[in-house]
């Protein structure tokens, strides 16, 4: 594996290897000294064209616990606002000798372009590109589901599980990444969204689509319920709004105590964060024992350690 750009590029074996490796990484994090020497001397650049403190510190923690040198590069400008171009930024990082570039970008495809533009030689790890992909988020979600819902997780997929993903699928890189990865790992995926927030052209996606949360709860034996963040401005954007009002959204798609109670006993509640409490998820649901939302954050570090390890240590092995 040279880059991690999209969950679509991952075979089942690739995905399970990352999850298993993440399991080993997580185990090391229980120790008193959590730092591993694995990536000593390697330089990991966190290149963020879009603010995301949560994702950045998760990657930073992952790289540091593997003893890599970490450089945080916040490039908030863009070629749209006449800042430095993606190409020039890439050339700069290449000159500095980045072994891996973790990139978060507002433009779909930016990670792909960095990996294939011929501008830099290091590994590229997509930390979210526009509304396209966010593969480590899907991997940490899968890791979390496997821990809770699969008897002996090591080496296993998610076969037979049903996962409902609720909310703004249209603008969600988390949803796109998850649909592909969950399918690869053998889970059944149900997308739950108003038709305005379902992309046109997904007839061939390996998933079902329903249009209210109640319909999903009645119609499927849900093992994991993943609530997506809904941006308030998408629902109140005047003539361009995707939904009449936040209140209506909450009524039809919000997860509250009542809906939580109608889920199977073992079902877990997930959210990629940051949450809009009271909009897509009530406090009762978010803070319930079935919520694994905080655990997702912790697992994010382990999964990102695994991804960095496999990209960078693998590279060394090949030399």
């Amino acid at each position: 594996m040279r880059h991690l750009l999209s969950t679509q590029d991952l075979s089942r074996d690739d995905a399970i290897l990352i999850l298993d490796t993440a399991g080993q990484m997580a185990a090391t994090q229980e120790r008193e000294v959590r730092k591993l020497p694995t990536l000593r001397g390697k330089t990991v650049v966190n290149l963020f064209f879009e603010d995301s403190t949560r994702t950045r510190i998760s990657f930073e923690a992952a790289a540091k616990r593997l003893s890599a040198d970490v450089i945080n590069f916040s490039a908030k400008g863009s070629s749209v606002s006449k800042g430095e171009s993606l190409k020039d930024t890439a050339l700069t990082l290449q000159a500095m000798g980045a072994d891996a570039v973790v990139v978060r970008h507002w433009a779909s495809g930016a990670a792909y372009q960095l990996a294939h533009g011929g501008w830099l030689h290091g590994s590229v790890l997509n930390a979210g590109d526009g509304t396209h992909q966010h593969p480590t988020q899907a991997l940490l979600d899968a890791f979390t589901m496997r821990r809770h819902l699969v008897g002996s997780p090591e080496g296993a997929g998610l076969d037979g599980l049903t996962v409902a993903i609720v909310g703004d699928v249209l603008h969600s890189r988390v949803a796109r990444s998850n649909v592909q990865l969950l399918h690869t790992l053998g889970a059944k995926v149900v997308l739950v969204a108003p038709p305005t927030l379902v992309p046109v052209g997904i007839a061939r996606w390996p998933c079902d689509v329903v249009h209210t949360l109640d319909e999903a709860i009645e119609g499927y034996d849900i093992d994991a319920l993943m609530m997506l963040r809904v941006q308030r401005e998408r629902m109140t954007g005047g003539g361009s709004a995707f939904f009449p009002s936040p209140e209506e959204y909450t009524r039809l798609f919000g997860l509250d105590g009542d809906r939580l109670g109608r889920l199977p006993e073992h079902a877990i509640v997930m959210h990629p964060g940051p949450m809009n409490r009271g909009l897509e998820i009530s406090a009762e649901a978010a803070d319930s024992p079935r919520s694994v939302i905080v655990e997702q954050v912790g697992n994010g570090v382990a999964v990102r350690m695994a991804a960095l390890y496999l990209l960078l240590a693998g590279e060394e092995g090949a030399q």
């Binding site: 679509q8 526009g130 509304t131 396209h132 046109v200 052209g201």
Partner: peptide
């Protein structure tokens, strides 16, 4: 113009996957 605000490519199977805003 209203149906194509911010649009990047043909709206269909490929735009759905690539996450690029569709031009229907």
């Amino acid at each position: 113009l209203r149906l194509t605000e911010g649009s990047q490519m043909h709206e269909g199977e490929v735009s759905a996957e690539l996450g690029l805003a569709g031009w229907p």
